[in-house]
Design a protein around this nucleic acid. Structure first.
Length: 769
DNA sequence: GGGTTGCCCGTTTTT
DNA sequence: CGGGCAACCC
């Protein structure tokens, strides 16, 4: 029996040294005075299970952080006895920062992190008991897919017909529900690939075990099993966590629910904060039921509703509330403008446009207008349903020279070059990391093809050793052997430098000596240039890490490299990515049936799918503090083909008293006449299609304090726009003046302007200077 | 082993 | 329309 119970956690020792003396009675705790009665109750009701139903903009993060501060301030627990779980790294970082501001450094001892980070922490403490070796690997999505693909191919599956990502998805959904391969019933496994997925799941788990690896799902499943097989370890944590707090409870999956339930069993002081109306992640395993059934699971749970909204105006709240009221499966809340706030404001603008292109044009013009009226660009956002929609807005921004930022999309740590660099590091740290090995063995090209790799794999299987060690045993052509021996030598050299070199220096050496840098340098494409820049960026990031291990763990778990909110940029992102954010002005384009609600959601999930889409609309609308623009287009280019759409059914669900529309009644669509009853005739008899764009918008959208009417005409196309090499050229731009071309990406150029600095512009708006 | 062409398919995405 | 990938050719 291990003696871990006697071990004091390091933070525990620290804690006693810095433990604050319990503060006097509540009124004197400074941070409580700013709370409204419900928030205060949510903070002070520390004992027993509490569910805080927290509507959009009602101050839930504040409640969570204050609650922790309160618990610690009253001396109800010491900081390491508090567990606070969030969903994203971003959320946990924010919470940590806010908490530190409130209570100082002891905030660092709170168990605050994402479910997965907590999972790693537990598994790292008891690896053997959890069936792992110390320093196990956490796979990223990429590794997982390659593993699954190999398994499918080995089993003679046509990976075109049954894609690895779908199989992986099914397995992950099982893991989300806390199900191991044994627990999958044949009925549940009949949906795909002739009921063979369960088998693949088992093989996959065995492969992970062999590799001493876990995937994201295992970071929850393994702790669950650990607690099942080692009740004493469960008891240890149950005892430790006197208070448990959970953020975004509506997003928890079954595995997370089970984990929480186990951990909370002893003290039962669990406080979950969430909003069922903002549950938008069912497609990746989130279980709204968790929040809906809270009271059944924790019988004497207290439910507190936070309904005072500190974010939006009356009209925005009215529109959002009416919309979400169409959902049937919800606990029900009514958001109201918080007391003492100015609830007035403009109605939600609803706009119809002839085409998706014009919609984008008008919205970006409106952005410019709002900007001139004093709204900061960083306080505006375009929220789209699917990521491909971002493209047209991006183009318009480039056209008008508006700085923008696509949020989401390709994340730093998901980029090929960063993953490659991480793979090199993993291999140096642990040459037996077969996945890292196979990722980079021929990157840069070393002449190691399928043939060589196959014979190494065979040797590895035969001797039960890793690929790296199997090189010595494999049958290889002399030239290949020579290359590989040299490679082994390199890895050994890097390993010998591990202790003496700084992490950053080591990585530099590895990437240079391996020829990886040279590989991209040899590639003359613009893309390669970006990749090299990213590698430089990686060096900078590495300064923050003391050990390689710490870095690798971070790079695996943190997929959203700190979204730097640098400077004045318009945010463009999907509705999903917007959750938790807020802006003065929000644009919600593409409200068309089929796109939003998305056809696939309707087809695959029926009424439930529709309700989730509606929640998504609700999330989008409630991001807005002052102004919201909803729009739809009659036709848009989808996959290179024109598609006709009718306005989203969500548009009809918006109450007339909260919106201001600019759509004609005789809006027609193909053969189906579209009659919108709530719309008052704006220009009787004329068709939406027939109307010329300018007439149509003059009275509504075109800014009164007129901007040059035809912005695009004020630019003159450059005769030199077809030259391929433009970097370094002096250019002239109508608005920005003279500048020098820094980078080019197709016809988009990054130009450093003498007066206004870096901007992205389209080549055709430049003249040679 | 590496480069090229031509076909297929196409929500949302965190850890 | 455009990215990813597999078959195909050198």
């Amino acid at each position: 029996m291990s003696d871990f119970f006697d071990l004091e956690e390091p933070e525990q020792i620290l804690e006693y040294a810095s433990r604050p003396t319990p503060l006097p009675e509540p009124p004197e705790l400074p941070f409580l005075s700013d709370l409204n009665p419900e928030q205060k109750q949510a903070v002070e009701q520390t004992e027993g299970p509490v569910l805080v139903l927290s509507g959009a903009g009602t101050g839930k993060t504040r409640v969570l952080t204050t609650r922790i501060a309160y618990i610690l301030g009253r001396g109800l627990a010491t900081s390491w006895q508090v567990l606070a779980v969030t969903f994203t790294n971003k959320a946990s970082r924010e919470m940590k920062e806010r908490l530190e501001k409130m209570i100082g450094l002891s905030a660092r001892n709170v168990w605050l992190g994402t479910f997965h980070a907590i999972g790693i922490r537990i598994l790292s403490r008891f690896p053997a008991e959890a069936g792992l070796q110390p320093r196990f690997i956490v796979l990223n999505t990429d590794d997982q897919e390659r593993l699954i693909k190999q398994i499918l191919i080995d089993n003679g599956i046509d990976v075109k017909k049954y894609t690895p990502s779908t199989v992986l998805d099914i397995i992950q959904r099982w893991k989300d529900r806390g199900l191991e391969p044994e627990a999958i019933t044949p009925a549940e496994d009949s949906g795909y690939c002739n009921g063979q997925v369960k088998g693949f799941y088992r093989i996959y788990q065995n492969r992970l075990q062999e590799l001493n690896a876990v995937d994201f799902g295992d970071l929850l499943l393994r702790p669950l099993n650990l607690f099942k097989t080692h009740p004493e370890i469960l008891g240890y944590y149950q005892k430790q966590f006197r208070y448990i707090l959970v953020d975004e409870y509506q997003d928890t999956n079954v595995a997370q629910y089970l984990l929480l339930r186990l951990l909370a069993q002893k003290h039962k002081n669990i406080c979950c904060v969430g909003d069922d109306d903002q549950s938008i992640y069912s497609w990746r395993g989130a279980e709204v039921e968790n929040i809906l059934k809270f009271q059944e699971v924790y019988p004497n749970a207290l439910i507190i509703r936070l309904e005072r909204n500190y974010r939006s105006t009356t009209h925005i709240l009215g529109a959002a509330s009416a919309l979400i009221a169409n959902n049937t499966s919800r606990l029900g809340k009514t958001l109201k403008v918080a007391d003492g706030r100015d609830g007035s404001g403009e109605r939600v603008k609803v706009r119809g446009y002839p085409s998706g292109k014009q919609e984008a044009e008008r919205i970006i013009l409106q952005v410019e207008d709002e900007q001139r009226r004093g709204t900061f660009l960083s306080q505006m956002a375009v929220l789209v349903r699917i990521s491909s929609q971002t493209r047209s807005f991006e183009d318009e921004c480039i056209k008008l020279g508006i700085p923008y930022k696509i949020i989401g999309g390709f994340k730093f740590y998901e980029r090929e070059e960063i993953r490659d660099a991480v793979a090199y590091l993993r291999l140096v740290l642990n040459p037996n990391d077969d996945l890292a090995f196979s990722r980079i063995i021929n990157k840069p090209r070393r002449g190691i093809g399928d043939g060589a790799l196959k014979s190494i794999t065979i040797a590895a299987k035969e001797h039960h050793i890793s690929l790296f060690d199997a090189i010595a045993w494999a049958e290889l052509r002399p030239s290949v052997r020579k290359t590989l021996d040299a490679f082994i030598g390199l890895v050994r050299t890097w390993q010998s430098k591990m202790d003496t070199y700084e992490t950053k220096e080591l990585v530099k050496h590895i990437l240079e000596e391996s020829g990886y840098i040279a590989m991209w340098q040899a590639d003359k494409s613009l893309e390669a240039e970006t990749r090299l820049e990213n590698i430089k960026e990686l060096y900078t990031v590495l300064d923050d890490f003391e050990t390689i291990n710490a870095f690798i763990e971070y790079a695996t778990l943190v997929t959203d490299a700190d979204e730097k909110t640098t400077g004045e940029q318009l945010a463009i992102m999907t509705l999903h990515a917007s959750k938790g954010l807020e802006f003065e002005t929000v644009f919600l384009p593409g409200w068309e049936d089929g796109l939003f609600p998305h056809q696939k959601a309707l087809d695959e999930c029926g009424e439930q799918g529709l309700e989730e889409e509606r929640r998504l609309a609700y999330v989008g609308l409630t991001r807005a503090k002052k102004k919201a623009f909803i729009s739809f287009a009659n036709k848009r280019l989808v996959y290179g083909q024109w598609q006709n759409n009718i306005p989203s059914r969500f548009v009809e669900e918006l109450p007339p008293e909260h919106i201001e529309e600019c759509i004609d009644t005789s809006f027609e669509y193909g053969f189906q006449p579209y009659q919108k009853n709530t719309f008052n005739s704006y220009q009787q008899g004329s068709s939406f299609f027939d109307q010329s764009e300018n007439d149509y918008f003059k009275s509504s959208l075109t800014p009164e304090d007129s901007y040059p009417t035809n912005i695009r005409a004020s630019y003159s196309p450059s005769p030199s726009s077809h030259h391929s090499r433009r970097i370094g050229k002096r250019v002239y731009h109508e608005t920005f003046g003279f500048g020098t071309v820094i980078r080019e990406e197709g016809d988009r150029l990054e130009v450093h302007f003498d007066d206004v600095g870096l901007k992205k512009v389209l080549a055709r708006f430049l003249n040679e200077g």
